[in-house]
Design a protein around this nucleic acid. Sequence first.
DNA 1: CTCCTTATTGCAGTTACTTGCAATAGAGAA
DNA 2: TTCTCTATTGCAAGTAACTGCAATAAGGAG
Lengths: 140, 140
Amino acid sequence: MSHNMEEIAARLRGAGYRVTPQRQLILDAVCELGGHVTAEAVYESVQEIVPSLNQGTVYRALNFFCDERIVTATRQPDGRTVYELAGQNPHHHFVCQVCGADYEVSQQMLRPLFERARQEYGFAVEMDHISFFGRCRECR
Amino acid sequence: MSHNMEEIAARLRGAGYRVTPQRQLILDAVCELGGHVTAEAVYESVQEIVPSLNQGTVYRALNFFCDERIVTATRQPDGRTVYELAGQNPHHHFVCQVCGADYEVSQQMLRPLFERARQEYGFAVEMDHISFFGRCRECR
DNA sequence: CTCCTTATTGCAGTTACTTGCAATAGAGAA
DNA sequence: TTCTCTATTGCAAGTAACTGCAATAAGGAG
Ligand SMILES: [Mn+2]
Ligand SMILES: [Mn+2]
Ligand SMILES: [Zn+2]
Ligand SMILES: [Zn+2]
């Protein structure tokens, strides 16, 4: 996973947002830490570079990037939220509540359901990163 | 929505749990308030009958009932969790993020997806009350 | 009915995240 | 470069929900 900051910056500025060093550091951290990362981990990471950078700023930036669809978020059953670069391949997850096994599944897999939602209810699901919790084969 | 306390109480006692007045009040409140109800609303409701009843107890009881599959919970995008009696007809929701419109959809609708999860990954999804957020026809 | 084990409660403190506000600083205009 | 507007930050307080611990009480045994 990698991100093109130039491109993202241009898009954000074009929309009237500002590209601050804090936001760049935070996005870099999400990218470099890789995979599903907690706000806490991002905070600790950026903290090492700019100790004055505030936790509130981390949360706000992460939410901002989610709104802008630059990162995705999933709420875990433990109450924490994990973030990830909303890169090239949109996907969802099947997560085992017992052992934590995590199957990444493509957007495709949910298409039939979303299609039916649209046809039967005129409803357009707008979730690009869902986690379905349950049990894997071994844990049943 | 209604619940048979006798039956539930017997089942809980049989499993080694205790049926306390607090738990009964809390379950009654979820039932009587009806529909999707917040912990806050439950707390205020039981508070009127037993003012000493603690918020922590409400949260613990609600989680306990969720574990026992007696109530279901959904986390809303605003961060709050709403609870509901896990009654006769298991269902999920399509919720419009703009106007709040809420389509209740039967468990059936998700069966093909869950079936595929099982066949392709050996994964058994164990979520009985999912909310899919998006936009309704009018709000698009 | 009384006793005993231990599940549950009340309480207070903690965690994860959000928010109001005054100070700061992007970034477009001149 | 300088000015100006206002988006964003740091800070501190606020919120929903969770948790450790000592006191309480459910409910089975006798
Ligand atoms: Mn992911
Ligand atoms: Mn429901
Ligand atoms: Zn597993
Ligand atoms: Zn709508």
